[in-house]
Simulated scan of single mutants.
Amino acid sequence: MPLGIQQNNNFLHLTMDVWQDQIFFNETVYPAGHFAAELLNVPDETIRELVTHGGAISHQVEALALAGRGEFIKLLGGTRASLEKLLDALWHCPPYSLMDKGQEQHTLEVLFSPASHNDLLKPASPVRDFFFRYLVAAFSIPLGIQHFAVAARYFEEGYLRRLKKRTETFFAMAAHDCFNSEWFWNMMCDVPVPDVEPFTITPDLRSSYVFARHPKQEKETVFVNRYFFDHAISFYIFDLMNGLQHGHAPSRCCGCGTYFLTTNGHMPKYCDGIAPQDPRMTCRQYGAMMRQKEQNKQHPVYRLFTTRTNTIRKHHQRGKISDELRNEALYVAESLRDKALMDNDYAANGYAKDMEQESIYAQARARIARENRP
């Protein structure tokens, strides 16, 4: 059977198959650390919305636990509405965004149907037990997402971003320093409801083995670690740590601000997404172009070219030269610049003299005269 099959991921349980430096979720392969990095791209507004709906459900849980039959049934409508709003927001967060939302909506249909009322009101009923576990998960998952996002963003900004190398050893040292820092844990104590779904470097999980078809060799079978998580934050923490072990870590793009996963020892500043500054380029391409422009500014050939062309434009703006002379002078300056970039001897010996302002104008006037000659 293929990797990631029969995981039965749902609102209460998440499952991940791990093989080498890859993870499998619902039969799809990702690099280790993928979900930990992707969660950091969930907008703060979405996380606040999740926590708000989760907070409403936590109050409804208390009321339902103490309510008599009539009050209990009356409270169900509001509780279901809160759950539906929560699911709408949660399905924008990975890995929930990859799961079957219809399955969860069907669960709500069954739980809140009149046919379930009697079972929900029986103290020892399995249906009642499942119902309250579902509600507890509903207000816990948003807090787990928020707590992990706060911790991982702090880790990336304060530690990972400063590393000289992005290898397992350097990641391990960064994790040790961050997660043993008094500043870090003081910050985590200040997050909303810090005791529910707290961040920890020892996530709660269960593991087993499954046997699956080798991802590349169909005739071979491999042992695969299957991990089970009853808490969302444990899923993300494990994915972060497993990724770091394999040299994978989140990094924030200097161009668009998106978090992306690095999977080698390189020190990338930019992602491969579309650059917000120019939709024709990726952030990586745009960053390379801007770096080249910055380097060009320091190049002596470009410095002189920039000085002369700025003067030509100012002379034109002040009416000292005509449109025709301006265009020809700029053409001459560009031609001399390109020649100097291609010929080091010319750049060292003849370029500065030819780029004198009056020399450029003389060459431009000569071009105009030739073009206008009958």
Rank of each mutant, 00 (worst) to 15 (best):
D195E: 09
D195T: 10
D195P: 00
V196D: 01
V196S: 01
V196C: 01
V196Y: 01
P198S: 01
P198Q: 02
P198C: 00
P198W: 03
F199A: 10
F199C: 10
F199W: 01
T200E: 02
T200F: 00
T200R: 04
T200C: 03
I201Y: 08
T202V: 01
T202A: 02
T202L: 01
T202C: 00
T202G: 00
P203L: 12
P203C: 10
P203R: 08
D204W: 14
D204K: 14
D204G: 07
L205P: 09
L205K: 03
L205A: 03
S207Y: 11
S207P: 00
S207C: 08
S207A: 12
S207N: 09
S207D: 10
S208D: 11
S208P: 00
S208W: 03
S208F: 04
S208M: 04
S208K: 08
S208I: 01
S208R: 09
Y209L: 10
Y209F: 11
Y209C: 02
Y209M: 03
Y209A: 04
Y209V: 06
V210R: 02
V210W: 00
V210F: 01
V210H: 00
F211N: 03
F211A: 08
F211V: 15
A212N: 07
A212E: 13
A212V: 04
A212Y: 06
R213W: 02
R213V: 14
R213Q: 13
H214R: 09
H214S: 11
H214L: 09
H214I: 12
K216W: 13
K216P: 04
Q217C: 11
Q217W: 10
Q217A: 15
Q217Y: 13
Q217E: 15
E218I: 14
E218Y: 03
E218N: 05
E218G: 07
E218R: 05
K219H: 02
K219M: 06
K219N: 04
K219P: 00
E220Y: 04
E220C: 06
E220Q: 14
T221K: 09
T221A: 06
T221R: 11
V222D: 05
V222Q: 04
F223A: 07
F223W: 12
V224K: 03
V224N: 02
V224Q: 03
N225G: 10
N225Y: 13
N225I: 13
N225P: 04
N225M: 09
R226C: 03
R226M: 05
R226I: 05
R226N: 01
Y227V: 13
Y227W: 03
Y227H: 10
Y227R: 12
Y227T: 10
Y227E: 08
F228A: 11
F228T: 12
F228K: 13
F228G: 08
F228H: 14
F229R: 04
F229L: 10
F229T: 09
F229P: 03
F229Y: 06
F229G: 06
F229A: 10
F229E: 13
D230G: 13
D230E: 11
D230R: 12
D230P: 00
H231M: 15
H231P: 05
A232G: 07
A232Y: 11
A232M: 13
I233W: 11
I233K: 05
I233S: 06
I233T: 07
S234A: 15
S234Q: 14
S234F: 05
S234N: 15
S234G: 15
F235I: 10
F235C: 07
F235H: 08
F235A: 06
F235R: 06
Y236S: 05
Y236F: 15
